[in-house]
Design a protein around this nucleic acid. Structure first.
Lengths: 226, 226
DNA sequence: CAATTTGCTGAAAATCTCCTGAAAATGTTT
DNA sequence: AAACATTTTCAGGAGATTTTCAGCAAATTG
C-alpha cells in the first residue's frame, strides 16, 4: 500500500511518514504542490494525503486537477482551519475525507485505513488466494493453517501480488508499487524477493500446488493455475 | 444499468431484485439456467449475477459458454459453499467476482457497483479478431475458448497485427514497430515468427478458417477472409 | 520452361531471462 | 559497538527464447 504525502512542513511530514511506515505503508513525501501533483498523476498511489495550504499549487487545486483528469485515487485533505467553508470546498474539489490540524496520529491512521479499504467493498482487510490469506490489519499471513512470518518488504510484495491475483504483474510494476519512487532497484532484486516468498509460502507446502508462478518475459502471477 | 439475475429460489431472487431496484438498477430474473443463458447471450446486460447451482445449466456452465462466445459481460457468481474448489472453478470459468451465501445485501451491492464501475474507470484492453482475443492487460490470448500461451515476442507481434487487423503490414513495418529501433533484424526473422504464430493460433484449429494470411510481395494480414 | 524472387521451415547458434548462493550494504537491537 | 536481521547487489549457470542460416517449395517473370 503506497501513500503520497504532500506537506511542506518537513517536521510534520516526517513524523507522519514514520508513523505510517510502522503500519507497513510505503510512503513518499512531496514538499510542494507542483511535485506532489506530478507524482500523484502517475497514478501509482493508493491514497493521497494533501495539505490544504501549500506553496505553489495548494491541496484543493491538486485535488481538482486530478479529478478532472479522471483520476480517482482516494484523497485525504489536511487543513489548519475548522471552517465549514473549507470543508465544503475540499469535498467539492473531490476529496474523500477531511482532517483538521492538529490531529492525533491515530485519527489519521483510522481515516487512511478507511480509504484504503473502501474500493474493495465493505469491511475487507483480508486478502485470500486459494489457501493463502493475508491480513492487512494484523499482518498475519497464513497458509493451510500455518502462520508465516515475513519481513516488511516481503509482506508488501505479497500484498501487492495478492491484490492482483490471477493477473500478471511485471517487475517494473512491482518496483514502482512496492518501492519508493526514488528507490533505484534492479529487476534482479524483485527476482530475489520472489525467491524469498517462494521459500516461505510455496516450498514448505509441497503437498499443495505452488501459488507463485513466473511467466517468462512478462512477470509473475499469484494464483492456483499455470 | 441493467442486471440479469439467474437464481432458482424465487424468494431470494425477489429480495435481491427489490434491493437492486431501490438502487435504481433495472433487474430481470431468470429462474433456470437455460433461459438465463438465452437472455444473457443477447448481450443487453451490464452485469450478470449467476447462482452457482441451478436446475439444468448451472452457473459455471453458463459462464463458460458465454466466455467462449467472446461475451465478456461482468459476472458475479453466487455460491452456497465456501469450498476453495468452487471459487477456483468459478474464476476459471470466467467469473469476475464471487460471493458466498449467505451474504449481507450491502456486500452484494458493493460488488455489483464495483463491476459496473470498471468499464468507465479502466478501459478494457482487449483486442478481438473473429474468434481470437488478446488482452493486453492480463496477457491472455484465447481462440474459440482455448487459452494460448505465447512468448513475449510472439505476443508483441500478434498484438501489433491485431491492432491493424484487415490491413496489410509489411515486414519492415513489423520490424520497426515490434522490435527496438536499434535492433538489426532480418526480414526472415519476421517470417520465422509468423511461422510460430501460425503453429499456435491457426494449426491447432483446423475447423476454423486460418486468420494469418501472407500477401506475397507486400506483407501479412490478420483477419477472416483472403 | 528456366531463372529469379519470395516465403516457409528445421535446426543450430547467439542471446536473454530467471534462479540461486553468497557477499556487501543498510538498518535495528541489545 | 557488537550482534543480528533485512535489503540489495553480484556472479554463475540452466534453460528458454530469439535470431540466423541454409535448403527447399511456390510464385513471378520473361
Amino acid at each position: 500500500m503506497k501513500i503520497l504525502l504532500v506537506e511542506d512542513e518537513h517536521k510534520i511530514a516526517h513524523s507522519i511518514k514514520q508513523g505510517l511506515e510502522q503500519e507497513h505503508f510505503v510512503v513518499d513525501i512531496a514538499y510542494d504542490g507542483k511535485t506532489g501533483y506530478d507524482l500523484a498523476s502517475e497514478g501509482l498511489y493508493d491514497v493521497l494525503i494533501l495539505d490544504r495550504l501549500l506553496p505553489g499549487l495548494d491541496g484543493v487545486a491538486i485535488c481538482q486537477q486530478l479529478r478532472e483528469e479522471g483520476k480517482h485515487t482516494p484523497i485525504l485533505m489536511l487543513t489548519a482551519k475548522t471552517q465549514v467553508q473549507d470543508k465544503v470546498e475540499g469535498l467539492l474539489a473531490g476529496a474523500d475525507d477531511y482532517l483538521t490540524k492538529p490531529f492525533a496520529f491515530e485519527e489519521l491512521l483510522a481515516r487512511v485505513k478507511a480509504l484504503t479499504r473502501r474500493p474493495s467493498g465493505m469491511t475487507r482487510h483480508r486478502l485470500e488466494v486459494v489457501d493463502l490469506s493475508l491480513d492487512t490489519d494484523t499482518f498475519d499471513v497464513v497458509r493451510s493453517g500455518k502462520r508465516i512470518v515475513l519481513s516488511a518488504k516481503e509482506f508488501a510484495l505479497l500484498e501487492y501480488m495478492m491484490r492482483h491475483h490471477n493477473k500478471i504483474v511485471s517487475k517494473e510494476q512491482i518496483i514502482s508499487h512496492v518501492w519508493n519512487y526514488d528507490a533505484d532497484i534492479l529487476p534482479n532484486t524483485v527476482e530475489v524477493f520472489i525467491g524469498y516468498l517462494r521459500a516461505k509460502i510455496d516450498r514448505p507446502f509441497p503437498k499443495e500446488k505452488p501459488l507463485i508462478h513466473t511467466i517468462r518475459g512478462f512477470g509473475y502471477k499469484i494464483g492456483e493455475k499455470e
